[in-house]
Amino acid sequence: MKILKLPKDKLDYFASVVQQFGEVHAPVEQDGKYVFKRLTRWSEARLAYDRTILPPKKYFLPPKEPLLVYRPGEGYVAPAGDVQHRLVLFGVHACDVYALNILDLVFAGKYPDPYYQARRKNIAIIGIDCVPDGKCFCRSMRADFVDHGFDLFFCDIGGHYLTFVGSALGDDMVLATETLFETVSPADIDEYKRRSGAKHEAFQLDVEIRDLPEIFEMEYGSAIWDDLGAQCLSCGSCSAVCPTCYCFDMNDEAVLGSRAGTRSRNWDSCLFSTHALVAGGENFRESRSSRIKFRFYHKQRGFVAEYGRPSCVGCGRCITACPVDIDIVEVLAALRETRHAATH
């Protein structure tokens, strides 16, 4: 990969140049938390942030998105949507880029999703490195470093940002600044490696993922799921804040007084009681415990079978968002405990 460096005091200038590549959105502070938002001025951006309330998912799979418009006599037509709108997301963490790479798998395949794909093409991503806090476990989920899925990625090496150039568009951004970026020296690389190693040691949470499929296979009947079912409120907060939860519902809304209408998709959650409900009233996951078990299984076991890795990236948002303090790291540890208790 092409690697350059940007003097930190030139970041403001770089940000002004980047505007020509699209509307710039970045984390801004809101009530003590952070949200990705359109900037009105660069000084609002907070690049040293822990995690945003919602992940960048909201730009690629909006919470509510019109898919088709129905007009009598014309049928269903794609709305003149905003999927081609060019944005630059500035300051995306590695785990969130990794999550987009996971969503890429889901929204490609036999039936590529044109809405997601268009947005992925039209939204540039400038990543930035971060300092793990007590809820981060991206290292365990192998999502603390990304080698693709972004246009540029900045890593703090003291007076400069070491810059990974991840795409031709990223390269164009570099070229647009003419002489702003500099070549890296062996000392810069050494400094990057030193800081990367230190970050690696800074994680407080650790999850062993190698044998998760085996553990889930053995613990399908565990009482842990009943306890979690009794605790869980089925509120779906964990799904909303999860960077890789992609379940959606599709609904038609009619225009009053006409036969025209709009078909939209909305974020959904497998924790909602209607998620597996079919016509006639049969519900394949009627109990809360079966639903929260399904969510864990799909992330940590089902996705492995389908795509070779868990879909969880260890961003810690579900731990932050859960109103009854269900903590995925604790749940995984407890499943491992029961297994050991059973085998010794």
Binding site: K110, Y246, F248, R265, D268, H275, V278, E282, F284, G302
Partner: peptide, 24 residues
């Protein structure tokens, strides 16, 4: 088998059983 389906094309997640999508 019958399952709830919204998209039919392996995206919306509703028809997921275990490790498979009923629609795919």
């Amino acid at each position: 088998l019958e399952r709830r389906m919204k998209c039919g094309i392996g995206k919306c997640g509703h028809c997921s059983v275990g490790y498979k999508y009923t629609c795919l």
